[in-house]
Design a protein around this nucleic acid. Structure first.
Lengths: 140, 140
DNA sequence: GTACTCAGTATCCATTGGTTACTGTCGGCA
DNA sequence: TGCCGACAGTAACCAATGGATACTGAGTAC
């Protein structure tokens, strides 16, 4: 479980309604938004969850992630490396071996992400039910 | 049908390495993945956080979200309505008024999402530092 | 010398997100 | 009577991201 010193976002949110937005999550120019955009891309969250169990190599990740295109996996991993979420080690062997390991920063993210994952698994049923109900209405 | 007596995702993850992937998050055909993709789109998370404080109308959301295109906001809200995360009420007034309210399902998501938001705010500094460090290396 | 492994690139195409302009209704104003 | 503005969107078009498939390069096994 990751303990976080910052004031809770939700409290910021409350006060932020009335005052000028300054350095907050909802300012599109705030770097925090960039962080959210990053986590919210298609694969980053899954990679963090996979690596939270230990280092993996490229082809292992590729296998676990289902149908990810290698180009996209490379992009994702490079971005994550740049963001300090993981490290990339190349072993000078043949065939080549490249190992990806979560940093402390990456590990600190896996807790919150796992919570989202749990929420998703716990609520798929309700969501698909809501979808079929919605689609059953002629107007929609 | 989706069985939902979910053990913690992270535990699943541990065991899942050795056994056949079946109904798990990393199977691209599992509906849970679709849920993650949805939450992981560009705006849904922000909308949930904004609405967790109470109902808002279209133009309020638009204002708070910075520079979101109206088309994209409409798409996002319709999808969320379809997924049962929020309800949409139209008041037959002039000028028209449309109010968006989180459902219980939506509220249940705001906790985990706020944790992610808190993480982001707490770690922007480390991330941007990692980025500049990465970019300072000539090879990258 | 051919085949195979791994970790990617290169090339091209599909889907999503974004920008700008426009619609429809009605009340207020001149 | 005609025009303006508010609100909640659509319509049409363009940019960026994601995805599928084929190919590269080094060296070891056959």
């Amino acid at each position: 479980m990751v303990t976080i010193a910052a004031p809770r976002l939700i409290d910021r949110l409350r006060s932020q309604r009335t005052q000028a937005p300054e350095g907050d999550l909802f300012d599109p120019d705030c770097p925090t938004r960039l962080v959210l955009d990053r986590i919210g891309d298609k694969w980053t969250a899954l990679v963090v969850l996979l690596l939270s169990d230990g280092p993996m190599r490229f082809s292992e990740l590729r296998g676990q992630l289902g149908r990810i295109a290698p180009k996209v996996l490379t992009q994702t991993l490079r971005r994550m490396e740049r963001d300090g979420l993981l490290t990339r080690e190349v072993f000078a062997e043949v065939p080549p071996r490249v190992q990806y390991t979560l940093t402390d920063l990456g590990h600190s993210l896996s807790g919150p992400l796992a919570a989202i994952g749990d929420w998703a698994e716990a609520n798929v049923g309700r969501i698909t039910a809501a979808q079929t109900a919605y689609d059953a209405v002629p107007g929609n």
